[in-house]
Amino acid sequence: MSVLLLGILAVVLLNVYAIVLILLRSRVYGVGLYRPMLLNIALSFLPVLLAIVLGVGLLLLAPVFGRLAQLVASGGVILVWSYLVVATLVWLVFFPNSVYLITELNFSHRGEDTPVPLWYDIVQTLALTLSGIANAVLSLAVVQTMFIVLVDLPGAAIPSSSWVAAGAIIVLGAIGVYLGRYLRLNSWDVRHPASLLWKLTTHLRQPGKALEAFGFVLTHALLIALLYVPLFVLGWSAVRAGAL
């Protein structure tokens, strides 16, 4: 099995395992189904689907762009980059939903009188969190790989420009998580940028909030980076070695 397919399969199975544990929690222990977790898993996996659609869409549209380029000078190049910019921005808006599952470790779904054993909720919530991190890593890896192929000639070394792009995305993802957790904003709130900016500035003006936001973004971004970088390097090395 190729490295790419194995990675996708592992991520899908981790998501399925998290879903199964959430459903079993309700059935086995007779408690209400905590539906927000199921919704969060769906939103978390959405960036993976969008990244795959982004790549497949580029492959399907490439012949069309090529034919248009023959009719209009540089028309194909303009269309390719227009597609990439729009599609990447859509993916980036939903990317924080994957990283957001880290915040589920606050066990907000547990009540004081819950009959669910703590050990079960630990495994269930950890599986949920890891599924989100896995979704973030996989979707970002797909986007960074496309960046390398389109912007730089793939070589033995990973281009530094792609690391800059990946780092910026990780930081933006951490910012998105902060906005979601503390300002209760969603991905679709970008439709109202003025309101979003007003809420953010009002929040950061409160004593200590700016420092808190900086610490939150820094620690979350570093965590994702420490997990993502070695995994991408290993995957890239395997692909370059012919495992793909």
Rank of each mutant, 00 (worst) to 15 (best):
M1W: 09
S2I: 01
L4R: 14
L6N: 14
L6V: 13
V11A: 12
L14C: 14
A18H: 11
L21K: 12
L23W: 12
L24G: 01
L24Y: 12
R27E: 13
V28I: 15
G30F: 07
L33T: 03
Y34G: 03
P36N: 04
N40A: 12
I41T: 13
L43G: 01
S44H: 07
L49I: 15
L50N: 06
G55T: 01
V56W: 00
L59C: 01
L60H: 03
F65T: 05
A69W: 14
Q70A: 15
V77G: 12
L84V: 13
L92W: 14
F94L: 14
F94W: 14
S98P: 08
S98I: 07
S98Q: 06
Y100T: 07
I102R: 12
T103W: 07
N106A: 13
N106R: 14
G111C: 00
E112N: 11
E112P: 00
D113L: 14
T114P: 08
P115G: 07
P115C: 05
P115W: 08
V116N: 05
W119D: 11
V123E: 11
L126V: 15
T129F: 10
G132V: 11
G132I: 10
I133A: 14
S139F: 09
V143N: 05
V149P: 00
L150A: 10
V151G: 11
V151R: 11
P154L: 01
G155Q: 05
G155C: 04
A156H: 09
A157M: 10
A157N: 10
A157P: 04
P159Y: 08
S160T: 13
V164N: 00
V164I: 15
A165M: 14
A166K: 06
G167P: 03
G167F: 02
A168D: 02
I170T: 09
V171G: 01
V177D: 03
V177W: 04
R181L: 02
R181Q: 11
R181F: 02
L185D: 01
N186W: 00
W188H: 05
V190P: 02
A194H: 03
K199A: 09
L204D: 05
G208E: 05
F214C: 02
G215R: 04
F216H: 10
V217L: 02
L218I: 05
L218W: 08
A221M: 00
A221K: 01
L227A: 10
V229S: 04
F232K: 09
W236H: 10
S237K: 05
S237Y: 01
S237R: 06
S237C: 00
S237G: 00
A238S: 03
A241G: 05
